[in-house]
């Protein structure tokens, strides 16, 4: 009898912990109010290029951020939502805080977790200044009334509450590479680990879809099932800093092969950045431990 009570007590405590752990945690609203930010949409356009928003949120052959692109994974198929300025189907009606809470905490305006196909676990390291500049830029873009498509995700992954547990296990505010010995490498770390979210594809994931940071940027299986996403660790890549910077600008590899697949969109984005940013990414990558 006593044993049963004990089991019951453990169960209740466990459920309470699970309830607490899986509850969506909003971003501290002070992130936008602590300092009076002047937002600059022109700077925000560069932030958007570095963060690669359009690569996922625009459909084939369209510049509007109307969503619709499919992402096949072991957990189901995710469809990028409409993030255009349409007030009903996009984010035109959202407050700045609602947008920043979505990007940096992965919580929707109605308080639900987003699936981590949306790389909020890396955007969480975005500076508030970059976030407000990005939002200012997003608000200048055209509206598109295409409705967002529901994800095609089966049980149990369709229980969004469970993503709280996922975040508890895998989301981290720490940099993967703790040491950034120069300002250039520090900038490169920010571009790779926060905005560029390179590790989302180039780092292998465990069975629950968490990135295996011990294998950081050392290549991974393609979630769509075909082929592998290559390692960009210097042990495997063997490119110089200049080679990497040129590739991120022109799309040419050192032996004049050219970029292909999804990476074409990435290089279109990195080509818009100032040359110092491409050099910073290169400096970070060749210095990887």
């Amino acid at each position: 009898m006593r044993k049963r009570a004990f089991v019951l007590a453990v169960g209740v405590v466990g459920a309470a912990v699970a309830f607490y752990v899986t509850a969506p945690q909003d971003l501290d609203p002070r992130v936008l109010t602590d300092a009076p930010f002047e937002s600059d949409p022109a700077r925000g356009e560069l932030v958007m290029a570095a963060a690669g928003c359009a690569s996922c949120h625009s459909a084939e052959g369209s510049d509007a951020l109307a969503g619709g692109k499919a992402f096949v994974s072991d957990f189901g198929t995710f469809y990028a939502p409409n993030i255009s300025t349409d007030p009903d189907h996009g984010i035109g009606g959202w407050t700045d805080y609602e947008i920043v809470n979505a990007m940096m905490a992965g919580v929707s305006p109605n308080g639900a977790h987003y699936y981590p196909a949306f790389p909020y676990t890396t955007y969480s390291k975005m500076t508030p200044q970059d976030a407000v500049d990005l939002i200012a830029h997003l608000r200048t873009l055209p509206a598109d009334a295409t409705p967002s498509r529901d994800h095609d995700v089966g049980f149990p992954f369709n229980i969004r509450r469970s993503l709280g547990g996922w975040k508890f296990l895998f989301a981290s505010d720490d940099w993967v590479v703790a040491d950034a010995p120069t300002p250039e490498i520090e900038r490169g770390r920010y571009l790779v680990e926060a905005l560029g979210h390179c590790g989302e594809c180039h780092t292998p994931r465990n069975i629950l879809g968490g990135t295996q940071t011990a294998q950081w940027l050392r290549g991974a299986a393609n979630p769509s099932g075909e082929g592998r996403i290559p390692s960009i660790h210097p042990d495997d890549l063997g490119w110089s800093e200049q080679d990497i910077a040129i590739y991120l600008d022109s799309g040419f590899t050192p032996d004049f092969d050219s970029v292909g697949g999804e990476m074409v969109d990435v290089v279109e984005n990195t080509a818009q950045l100032p040359p110092e940013d491409r050099a910073a990414i290169a400096a970070y990558l060749v210095a990887l431990p």
Binding site: G227, F252, S258, V264
Partner: peptide, 12 residues
């Protein structure tokens, strides 16, 4: 033109 074609028609 290289990447325009490789985008869809070649894996990376």
């Amino acid at each position: 033109t290289c990447s325009a074609c490789h985008r869809e028609y070649r894996a990376r």
